[in-house]
Design a protein around this nucleic acid. Structure first.
Length: 685
DNA sequence: TTAACTGGAAAA
DNA sequence: TTTCCAGTTAAC
C-alpha cells in the first residue's frame, strides 16, 4: 500500500532550493513511513509476542532489559539466548534475547526486533544470571561481563556440528580414590561429587602431589554423576598439564582445553562444543570461568592467589569470585586448590562456606623435609659485615647430593619488581601511619609517600624497632646460572624465565634455574628444590608481599618428589619462611587475616578504588552514598592528570558498598557526567 | 541515530 | 501569546 502524498507543509519557504530540499526530505520521510508501516503491519508472534532484550551498550543507566515486539517470522528463532539486532535510539545495536513473555510493562508501543542474527542460543540462562550478579558485585554493567563471557560469532564455524562426546570413559573410581588417598575426607568429597550434591572444599595440596591428576579425578567424579565440571588455572602451562591429565584419566573427547590466542574460529568452535553440551568438562585460564558448561556439577580453581586470575578488563572480576558465585547460583560443588593458601581461601573455611581437604601432619613429614638456612635479619642488622652468603655450604651439599638422583630446581627471584620501602635496620615493610598503606618513593626528588592516601612522610619511624631510616631493598645479581655452572661443573645447567620458559625437564641430573612462576615440571619430581634470595621476594611493594612470597616458594617446593628435600636461603625467623618449613599455610593465612583485620585491610575490609579526572573523582565522592562506617582515603594523583580515591568499609558492608557504587555509576551515566573507573576489590593498588 | 522535548528568541 | 529553531535527551 502506498501512502497518500503528504499535504502541503504550512510555512514552507517558496524559494526553489528550499523546495528541492523539502522534496528530498519528503521522499525520505515517505520511505521511512513505508518502512515503519511495513514493520508494524507484519504479523506479531501469536505466543509470547514480547522479547526481553539485553542491549549491548556500555552505559550504566541502560543496564536493564528492553522489550521488543517479535514478528511472527521470527517467533521460532527469537528464543532466549540468541543474538539479535535491534533498533535502539535510532541505532542498530546488538543484543541478546533473555526471555520471551506474553506482555510488556512498557507504556509505549514496542519496536519490532530487526533481525535474529542466528538461532544458536549462545547466552545460557545461567551465564546471564552470572553476568547480573557480577555486575552487581563489581559495580559494573552486564554488557561488559557478557563481552568477557560470549566470544564473537564465527558464522562458518557455527554451521559445523560439534563432535559428539564418546559414550564411555576410561575412568576408574578406584584409581581416583587411590590418588586422593592422602587426604582424610577426600573419599566422601568424591562420593558427593558423583551423587549430585555440592560439597565445597579448600584443598591444601601436599608437596610432591601430581595435582592435575587429582583435579582430573574430581572432574571425572562429577562427570560420572552426569554433571559437568569447570577448572580454571593461572596459565597455559597448567592448562596443558590438565589437558594431559584429563586425557589420561577419562580418555579423549570428554573435555575441552581452552587456551588463549587460538584465533576466533577455534575459539568459537570450542565454545559451541560446550554450549551445545558436546563437551562437559572444561579447563582453561580465567576466560574459561564463563564457559556455559551444561549441568555444572563442579567448579575448581587452582592456585587462586595467582594474580593472573584477576581479569584486567572491566568490571575486573576475579576468577575465584566468578567461580564461587557460579557454584552458589548453579548448585555446583567447589574445589579451591593450591600448594599455598590465599587469605580469601582461609576465609572460606573460617566462615564455614567450605571444608578443608588437607594431608595429616604425619603424612607431610614422611613426604618431604623443608628447611631454611642463613643468618636472621636480626643478626644481619647487628653485624652488616657478616654478609650472609647467597649459597651457604648446606646448599652446596644438597645440590651435589641430589644431582646423583635427578634434576635440582633452583628458584631465584627476577629483577624488576616495584619495591616498597622498608625499615633500614629490621627490614619491616614501611606502612603509612594514617591508613596502613605501603610507603614508596614517588619520584627522585619527592619524599616517600603512601601509595593509597598520598600522605607524604616526613618523620617516619619503624613500628617494630623504632629506627628512623628507610631503604629500598636491593636486587641481587642475575648470574645465578653461571655461578652454579662453575661450582657444579660438569653438571648441565638449564634456565627457565621471562620469555624463555621451559614447561618440563627430563628426570636426568641437571641444575634447573628458574624465576618464580617459570619453574618447569620434572615428571618424576625434583629430588631437591632450593629457594635463593628469599629476602628479595619479601620486599615487594604490595600489601600481599609476604603471602605472595610464600605462594611462590610453595609452588616451587610443590614440585619436589616424594621423599625429596626443600631448602630455602633466608632468615629462619621470618614468619613466612617458618610457615614454609612447617608447611602450615592455613596458620600463616590466619595470621595474615588477623593482622589485616587490625589495619582495616582486605579481606577483613572491602576496598574499592575510584579513578578518573580530578574534578570527576571529587564529585563522584560527593555523590557516593557510601554505607555507614565507610572511609574515603585520598585522593592521590596517578598517571597523567588523573587521581584516585580508595573507599573502604567493614566486610559486612561490602555488598552495600557495591550497590552504592553501582548506583553512583548509573546516576553519573544518566547525567552524562565525566566517567570515573571503579574497581571493587582491586588486585593491587 | 533520531524523534521528542526544551527553552529562548523573534514575530505578531 | 504564538511560532520557530537549535540544542538536548532518552533510548522498548
Amino acid at each position: 500500500m502506498t501512502p497518500d502524498p503528504a499535504p502541503d507543509q504550512p510555512g514552507q519557504p517558496e524559494l526553489l532550493p528550499g523546495m528541492v530540499r523539502a522534496t528530498v526530505k519528503q521522499s525520505q520521510a515517505k520511505a521511512r513511513a513505508t518502512r515503519a508501516r511495513k514493520a508494524s503491519e507484519l504479523a506479531v508472534a501469536e505466543v509470547d509476542p514480547v522479547a526481553r532484550v539485553l542491549v549491548d551498550v556500555p552505559l550504566a543507566h541502560l543496564d536493564r532489559t528492553f522489550d521488543y515486539a517479535v514478528p511472527e517470522t521470527m517467533a521460532a528463532a527469537a528464543l532466549p539466548g540468541v543474538r539479535v539486532k535491534v533498533r535502539f535510539a535510532g541505532q542498530d545495536v546488538d543484543g541478546f534475547v533473555v526471555a520471551r513473555t506474553g506482555a510488556s510493562d512498557h507504556a509505549g508501543s514496542l519496536t519490532a526486533l530487526r533481525r535474529v542474527v542466528s538461532d544458536e542460543p549462545v547466552l545460557a540462562p545461567a551465564v546471564a544470571e552470572l553476568a547480573a550478579a557480577l555486575a552487581e558485585r563489581y559495580a559494573g554493567v552486564r554488557s561488559d561481563v557478557l563481552r568477557l563471557a560470549v566470544p564473537p560469532r564465527h558464522a562458518t564455524t557455527e554451521k559445523q556440528p560439534s563432535d559428539p562426546e564418546p559414550a564411555t570413559t576410561d575412568w576408574d573410581p578406584a584409581e581416583a580414590a587411590r590418588s586422593w588417598a592422602t587426604y582424610e575426607h577426600a573419599d566422601a568429597y568424591l562420593r558427593h561429587l558423583a551423587d549430585g550434591s555440592a560439597p565445597r572444599a579448600v584443598w591444601g595440596t601436599a608437596p610432591g602431589d601430581d595435582w592435575p591428576r587429582l583435579v582430573a579425578h574430581a572432574a571425572a567424579s562429577a562427570h560420572h554423576g552426569g554433571r559437568g565440571a569447570l577448572i580454571c588455572v593461572p596459565d597455559v602451562k597448567d592448562v596443558a598439564r590438565l589437558d594431559q591429565a584429563l586425557t589420561e584419566v577419562l580418555g579423549p573427547g570428554h573435555h575441552v582445553a581452552l587456551t588463549a590466542e587460538v584465533g576466533p574460529g577455534p575459539r568459537y568452535r570450542d565454545f559451541l562444543a560446550i554450549s551445545r553440551g558436546a563437551r562437559r568438562i572444561v579447563v582453561g585460564t580465567r576466560a574459561a570461568a564463563f564457559a556455559p558448561v551444561r549441568d555444572l556439577g563442579l567448579v575448581c580453581i587452582w592456585d587462586d592467589g595467582d594474580d593472573l586470575h584477576a581479569e584486567p578488563r572491566a568490571p575486573y572480576p576475579h576468577t575465584r569470585e566468578t567461580l564461587l558465585l557460579r557454584a552458589e547460583l548453579e548448585g555446583a560443588a567447589a574445589l579451591v586448590g593450591g600448594f599455598a593458601r590465599s587469605v580469601e581461601g582461609e576465609y572460606l573455611l573460617r566462615t564455614g562456606w567450605a571444608h578443608e581437604l588437607a594431608p595429616p601432619r604425619a603424612a607431610l613429614r614422611e613426604r618431604v623435609t623443608v628447611a631454611v638456612t642463613g643468618a636472621t635479619d636480626h643478626e644481619l642488622a647487628r653485624d652488616p659485615h657478616a654478609q650472609a652468603t647467597r649459597l651457604p655450604s648446606e646448599v652446596h651439599q644438597l645440590i651435589r647430593d641430589a644431582l646423583t638422583r635427578g634434576p635440582v630446581l633452583v628458584q631465584t627471584p627476577r629483577a624488576g619488581y616495584a619495591l616498597a620501602l622498608a625499615c633500614e635496620r629490621c627490614r619491616t615493610p614501611a606502612q603509612c601511619a594514617h591508613c596502613a598503606g605501603p610507603l614508596a618513593l614517588t619520584g627522585p626528588t619527592t619524599p616517600p609517600a603512601c601509595r593509597w592516601c598520598g600522605t607524604a612522610v616526613d618523620a617516619w619511624s619503624c613500628a617494630e624497632c623504632g629506627a628512623r631510616g628507610l631503604r629500598a631493598p636491593v636486587l641481587g645479581d642475575a648470574r645465578t646460572a653461571e655461578e652454579l655452572g662453575r661450582i657444579f661443573a660438569p653438571a648441565r645447567v638449564r634456565t627457565s624465565s621471562g620469555d624463555r620458559v621451559l614447561a618440563v625437564v627430563g628426570d636426568e641430573p641437571a641444575i634447573v634455574v628458574a624465576t618464580p612462576g617459570a619453574e618447569p615440571v620434572a615428571p618424576g619430581g625434583y629430588p631437591a628444590v632450593v629457594l635463593l634470595d628469599t629476602r628479595l621476594l619479601l620486599g615487594r611493594a604490595d600489601l600481599r608481599s609476604e603471602e605472595e612470597a610464600l605462594r611462590r616458594w610453595s609452588n616451587a617446593a610443590g614440585l619436589v618428589r616424594q621423599g625429596g628435600r626443600v631448602l630455602a636461603v633466608g632468615d629462619p625467623a621470618h614468619p613466612a619462611l617458618q610457615a614454609l618449613v612447617r608447611w602450615d599455610h592455613s596458620g600463616f593465612a590466619a595470621r595474615e587475616i588477623a593482622q589485616r583485620q587490625e589495619a582495616h585491610l582486605p579481606p577483613a575490609s572491602r576496598l574499592a578504588t575510584i579513578t578518573g579526572e580530578a574534578g570527576a573523582v571529587d564529585d563522584a565522592v560527593t555523590l557516593l552514598a557510601a554505607p555507614p562506617g565507610a572511609e574515603v582515603l585520598g585522593p592521590v594523583p596517578v598517571g597523567d592528570d588523573e587521581e584516585r580515591v580508595v573507599v573502604r568499609v567493614p566486610r559486612a558492608q561490602g555488598a552495600a558498598l557495591s550497590r552504592a557504587l553501582r548506583e553512583l555509576q548509573q546516576v553519573r551515566s544518566g547525567r552524562k557526567l565525566d566517567p570515573v573507573r571503579i574497581q571493587v576489590d582491586p588486585a593491587a593498588i
